[in-house]
Amino acid sequence: MSTTYEAAPELPEVLAEPRKRGRIATFIRRHPTIVAGGGLLTIMILVALLAPWLGTVDPTAIKPWMRTRPPSAEHWFGTDMLGRDIYSRTIYGARVSLIVGFAVALLSSVAGTALGLVSGFVRWLDTPIMRVMDGLMAIPGILLAIALMALTQGSVTNVVAAITVTQIPQVARLIRGVVLSLREQPYVEAAIASGTRTPMIIWRHILPNTLAALSVQATYICAAAMITEAILSFIGAGTPPTIPSWGNIMAEGRSLWQVKPFIVFFPAAFLSVTVLAVNLLGDGLRDALDPRMAKRL
């Protein structure tokens, strides 16, 4: 009911506009956050892909005799404690953050969806799975990730795995909720009654209806994962120091933030802008895909 109330005043404009302006312009006007977020994110992806051609040098090459130099024509963002070029490290660092963000979003969506589906369809597995998910959620995510990292040696793969574990429960609960409400829908009940096999029901009726909520959730997970990677690296339990990641650059410059603030500043700015872009994209997607959810958050 409230949905119609919200949408009503916009209706005439929506109908009137498309013919006059181009479709792109309309899209931009109707979804400014998607455009802003998506645009920024695209720029960051390009930066990550094109890192070698953006005036960078080897981000791991050390020059101990050129340490902690402030930004200059030669080193645009200055150098760190080992004389490495912070500009190059920051640009290459985009790769790590984006890979971690996207990989965690993808993996936790897939695993969480699988668990949520099983939980929603297989009654005797429902309680054990959800209890384990509750247990995982009850452990603060950062602490869980730190403990998982202590278990393994630092690598991007392990960082992705550790953060994924902390994000799966949210997805599983979301999907299970959707499954349980969809099961009550007449057309699903009808499909079950007519003997359609469960995988087919999932494929035809359930999955398509979870996509909207899932993709919104996935963007938020992506943003959270990028921040978590930075925090893990910041306290020394993240990406190995041989790989330039924003968290690592900040971790290494941390003790010098008073005297050499530029070491921390540049990666921090890049990280914030990237996470901002993903969050904006998520907000935009949510508004566009699911007006009911837009109301809730």
């Binding site: 943003a223 921040i227 930075a230 925090i231 910041f234 900040m250 941390r254 933030w257 008073q258 603030p261 921390v264 921090a268 990280l271 914030s272 802008v273 996470v275 901002l276 969050n279 904006l280 907000d283």
Partner: peptide, 22 residues
């Protein structure tokens, strides 16, 4: 609000400490 979501807590922390502390 979106900015608040997007900046890691330690970055905000150091910024505040630098500005109001030092």
């Amino acid at each position: 609000a979106v900015f608040g979501f997007s900046t890691p807590v330690f970055v905000i922390g150091y910024l505040l400490a630098y500005l109001f502390g030092l």
